[in-house]
């Protein structure tokens, strides 16, 4: 049994919970120290992540594994952005800034925009009123789809109030219940970890 990690988890977990509720300046100073530590860990995690990404794609590229050209693009982009950023900085007009505006930004937007096409296709095929519950869901979805955009108001002035009611009453009730459930679940999981009941993070169930 490894008691060290359990003790560290218990002490740090309990201390952070206590610090959240104690406004005394000494306690807050202690929290600042812990925040500094957390930021150092985050910085190292970024470095570790980059190195891991490099190693993983280098291996695929060198062994000519399936999809190796994509690995080459990833390696080239990672090297280019890192070197250009360190040498030139990231201000307006620099290589990194141009790469961001002319390559990264349009590509990311395009990938996300493709969702509209797939969602439309999926909605057409899967959104079927096969029973009473599905019909209720379908009816609500159609009202929301039409009522939440400008054309709904243009077609019938009653659409916006109906959609507002759907959002403010049934939606809010469900969301509140889900949020409370998630909150209680998170507290319970956190307590199990802090008290050492759940030790799955140590690599065992």
């Amino acid at each position: 049994m490894r008691y060290g990690p359990l003790l560290v988890t218990f002490v740090v977990g309990t201390a952070l919970v206590a610090m959240f509720f104690i406004p005394h300046h000494k306690v807050q100073e202690g929290q600042s120290v812990l925040l500094d530590w957390a930021n150092v860990v985050y910085a190292f995690a970024l470095i570790l992540g980059s190195l891991s990404l490099w190693a993983s794609h280098q291996r695929k590229f060198l062994s000519r594994a399936e999809g190796w050209p994509y690995s080459f693009v990833t390696l080239a982009a990672l090297a280019f952005v890192t070197i250009a950023g360190v040498v030139q900085g990231v201000e307006e007009g620099t290589l990194v800034n141009r790469y961001y505006n002319m390559v990264n930004s349009p590509l990311a937007s395009t990938m996300f925009a493709l969702l509209a096409f797939f969602i439309a296709s999926a909605a057409f095929r899967a959104f079927r009123a096969r029973n009473a519950e599905a019909t209720l869901l379908l009816g609500t979805a159609i009202i929301m789809m039409i009522g939440r955009v400008s054309v709904g108001e243009f077609l019938w002035s009653g659409f916006p109030p109906v959609t507002e009611w759907l959002l403010d009453v049934p939606n809010l009730a469900a969301k509140r219940a889900i949020a409370l459930g998630i909150g209680l679940g998170a507290v319970s999981t956190a307590l199990k970890i802090i008290l050492g009941i759940d030790r799955s993070y140590l690599g065992r169930s």
């Binding site: 509209a116 057409f124 095929r125 079927r128 096969r130 789809m145």
Partner: peptide, 25 residues
């Protein structure tokens, strides 16, 4: 707006087709 209307019409047409082919249970 037009995308929402297009999807809504497609979904409604799909369900009309489902109803006519006896898929509603």
């Amino acid at each position: 707006s037009l995308i929402h209307v297009t999807i809504a019409i497609l979904v409604l047409l799909g369900n009309l087709a489902l109803f006519l082919t006896g898929g509603f249970r």
